[in-house]
Structure formats: C-alpha cells, structure tokens
C-alpha cells in the first residue's frame, strides 16, 4: 500500500502516523508538503494527521482545507480514493467538505488529553474490517475541538447508512454521557463518507500500535486498510 501523509504547518503527528502505517504495511509512507499540487502516482491512501495546522487560525482545519494540495485530494476522493483523517485531519476533512458536519469546541471548554474507549459501530469499512462488531478498544485523545456536530437530518443519514464508525463509550462498552467527554452529538467519534472510503475520527489509533507504546489497540485499523491493498 502506498500511503501519503500530508504535512501542513503545525501538523505534529505525522511521525506517529508513519510508524503505524509502516508497521501494518512494511512500507514507509511518503510525507507530502501542503504546497504541492499533485499526489504521487500510485497513491492508495492519503492520510491527514493530527496537530494544529496553521495554528488553528479562524477555525480548526479551515486554512489547511484551502491549501494548494487540497484540490488534488478532492479529485482523489472523487475517483474513489481512500482517505484517513485523524484529529486535526478529521477537522480538515469536514472543512474541505469531504465529510459532513463540523467539530466544535469541547462542551466543557477543556482541552482533553487522556485515553478514551471507542466502540466499533460497523465492520463494513476498509478501516474497521479487522475488528468484531461492537468491540471496544482504547485510544488516546488530545483535542480542544472534538465536539462533533451536524444537523438532525445529516445525523439520521449517518445512522441510517451505517456510517458512524466509532462511538465514545465506557471501558465496558456503554455509550454514556460521561464517556462522551467532548459533548459530541450521539457520542460520535468517527464517521465514514458515503462510499465508506473516507474515515475521519478524533482519537489517535496510531498512538497504540506497539507494546512499547503501551498497547496495540489501534493496530487493527491500520491492518484493515493495509489488507485492502494487500489482496488487491
């Protein structure tokens, strides 16, 4: 799998992401600067990693979503390309209109830096196929604006089309208000595009992919997407 990680000014999780991708694919991802205007030929997966692109000016992800590389990313999406956005990358994807909704300031106003638990809400996606339905896994989160919001119609559509990938839950797998620390609508932590090939999520599965990091809870996501291209 040829993965390309986009680098914006203020991105700071590209190396963690590269480690996770390399672990699952055995291949070093390409890191591409935001001022490029084309993706490398043969790109299978575009990854928008976490960080604080452009200092979160105006709105988180707003500036990055208008950077020179983004028209090529939109074109890649239109052709059915696979795109993963984590944390700030999720914010950029919503700002770019590649995923619906928006990420608001956390309901409690606090920057949340801690582990959370996520429940796999669908295994029908290139990113979640190696998990069991309703399996719960641990993932670190670190964000100030992770409060997913969309209108009622969009939410009904996401639910009806099985496009909620992950929800915030307790360690026991219950989607409670306490587990939903940033106040996201319906405990939503990650969503899929209509064709299921674009995933955006706030927590960081790439930070738990090796026992040395304290666990491998996030590894199935990278093995799932690597598997799509290993068999292709």
């Amino acid at each position: 799998m040829n993965a390309v990680i986009l680098l914006f000014p203020g991105t700071n999780r590209e190396r963690d992401m590269a480690i996770a991708l390399q672990k699952a694919t055995g291949k070093k991802p390409t890191i591409l600067f935001h001022q490029e205007t084309a993706l490398p030929a043969g790109t299978d997966l575009v990854v928008l990693p976490g960080g604080f692109s452009h200092g979160d000016y105006l709105r988180c992800g707003a500036m990055a979503a208008r950077s020179p590389i983004m028209p090529a990313v939109a074109e890649f999406a239109a052709k059915g390309g696979h795109i993963l956005g984590v944390c700030n990358g999720f914010q950029v994807l919503t700002e770019a209109g590649l995923l619906p909704g928006a990420l608001l300031r956390n309901a409690g106003l606090r920057f949340l830096s801690m582990d959370c638990h996520l429940r796999v809400e669908t295994t029908n996606s290139p990113y979640t196929s190696r998990w069991q339905q309703a399996e719960t896994y641990r993932a670190p989160m670190a964000h100030g604006d992770g409060n997913f919001f969309c209108d009622a119609e969009t939410l009904a559509r996401l639910q009806g089309e099985d496009r909620v990938a992950f929800r915030y839950v307790t360690a026991e797998g219950e989607a409670t208000a306490e587990a939903n620390r940033n106040g996201a609508i319906d405990n939503v932590a990650g969503i899929l595009s209509e064709n299921r090939r674009i995933l955006g999520m706030m927590p960081h599965p790439e930070d738990l992919v090796d026992p040395l990091m304290g666990g491998t809870d996030g590894l199935p996501l990278f093995e799932s997407i690597a598997g799509v291209f290993a068999t292709a």
């Binding site: 105006l58 709105r59 208008r66 919503t94 700002e95 619906p100 909704g101 928006a102």
Partner: peptide
C-alpha cells in the same frame, strides 16, 4: 461563504 464562515455551524 468560501472561507470566513463555516455555514454548517
């Protein structure tokens, strides 16, 4: 419309 406001929110 294009940048200053995110009309979703």
């Amino acid at each position: 419309r294009k940048l200053l406001a995110n009309t979703v929110i």
